[in-house]
């Protein structure tokens, strides 16, 4: 929680950081979480901030 607050404070939208516990027996929960995460992140669009360009490989 402190971490996500600090990230948001520094300018990283809260919905980009997700955390959950899913047991290997909780298939439906897993689907729900993945759906929720992808929808939340898709709504925000690609992140341009706090991203380092990959080193170019020749």
């Amino acid at each position: 929680m402190l971490l996500s607050n600090l990230l948001e404070y520094m300018g990283i939208e809260r919905n980009r950081l997700h955390m959950s516990w899913v047991s290997s027996a909780e298939a439906t929960k897993f689907i729900d979480v993945v759906t929720e995460v992808t929808e939340a992140v898709r709504a925000l669009g690609p992140n341009k901030y706090f991203i380092k360009d990959q080193a170019k490989v020749a």
Partner: peptide, 23 residues
Amino acid sequence: VGKGQDAVDVMTFHFLRAYHCAG
């Protein structure tokens, strides 16, 4: 974390150092 002057590396250093001091 990268060791140069890259703005993202600098920010990563500060962000993580601060977090290591949490509480």
